[in-house]
Design a protein around this nucleic acid. Sequence first.
DNA 1: ACCCGAACCTGAACTCAGTACAGAGTTTTA
DNA 2: TAAAACTCTGTACTGAGTTCAGGTTCGGGT
Lengths: 209, 209
Amino acid sequence: MTGSGREKTPYCPVGRVLGLRERKKLEAWRTIRSTALRLISERGFDAVSVEDIAAEAGVSRTTFFSYFRSKEAVVYDLDPQELQQWRELLADAPGDEPLWEALTGLVLSLAELLADRLPLQKRLFQQSPELCDSSRDVCDSFGPDLREWVARRTPDGDELHAALVLNTAFAAFNTAIEAWDPDDSFDHFLDLARDCLRLAGGGLARSVS
Amino acid sequence: MTGSGREKTPYCPVGRVLGLRERKKLEAWRTIRSTALRLISERGFDAVSVEDIAAEAGVSRTTFFSYFRSKEAVVYDLDPQELQQWRELLADAPGDEPLWEALTGLVLSLAELLADRLPLQKRLFQQSPELCDSSRDVCDSFGPDLREWVARRTPDGDELHAALVLNTAFAAFNTAIEAWDPDDSFDHFLDLARDCLRLAGGGLARSVS
DNA sequence: ACCCGAACCTGAACTCAGTACAGAGTTTTA
DNA sequence: TAAAACTCTGTACTGAGTTCAGGTTCGGGT
């Protein structure tokens, strides 16, 4: 919905020094999120309604939707502080590396940033296939930013190549997520992601099998 | 929804010789689909409700949902005959080629199979970003079959590689779709798809830019 | 300290996707 | 031609997502 506007409201800015308002908002965001994750991991995604989450978080249904665009978003969205770190990462990324190498680095940094959330998230995927189906992309929340970053450093005429590189990096990342067992260590996931990115970057054509 | 069962009902079987029942069903399927595409291309995806489609197609809302799992599905699903051709393609695919080459071939054959529908579909994407967002994958309808095909010809222990190859092929295909202008010839699209698959297969790491 | 505007929260009412089901109608089969 | 199997339809329901008109709370001046 909402056409393709990026952010309806500049929600949860996370500036340097937070006023009372901003602190409350961040707190509300986190209460809703953690409540949601708790309920969903207890009962499964489908068995929890937005109403349940809102009630349990002590907030109205309407407010829930002012913090999260959809029910899935409460699972996928980055914490405002993570989002800020992610944007700093993008801002600081070197501009001289070849695109694929730069992207590989970014994706791996991102993975580390998500270290806390990913295991739980992956477990939710396994419990609730409907979650997997709907948003098949864990990339939803950071994807747009990354797209923009790629676009900015892409010379005219090379859009196809840039898009291909980006989509392939996503594919590699998602493949690693799919393959990972959340009971294994997170380092193991990082290895998987590295492997996938390396294989995809090195060319899938000539290869085993 | 529906756990992860493949097909709730074996709808529209398209056997060799069709009985009256099957003929009616195929006809109904096509009426609904074409009505839907017409209305949606006239008014936009969001401005058309399932009720509108059903009414215009002379069928009940309930019946609509017995033919299509969702409102998006009516745009994405393969025609039962296309689906059959696609399955034959899979069945006939050689088992001795390396995985990437085999997949490349399959994806390109698939593209040709979709020649009629793709231009309109791409135009709908452009008109209705909400369509793009929701099902970011044109691969939805044939993806499961292809996954299964890949799984069958994957030796144990190589699942990661197989998944990576598959996801990357999808990524390349989607990239081509994204990049294609539906006012250009369909051959141009095929060239794009070929290029994307070749680039991804050949290794994105060392490359221009 | 006070006030005003802006930002925020809320309940209520609404639209629409998707599901369940029971009954009526149609095709198939024997 | 009658029973069995399948299909369609209306009805009624759940729940996601939106809109909106208040009420409340915060922040920045003065």
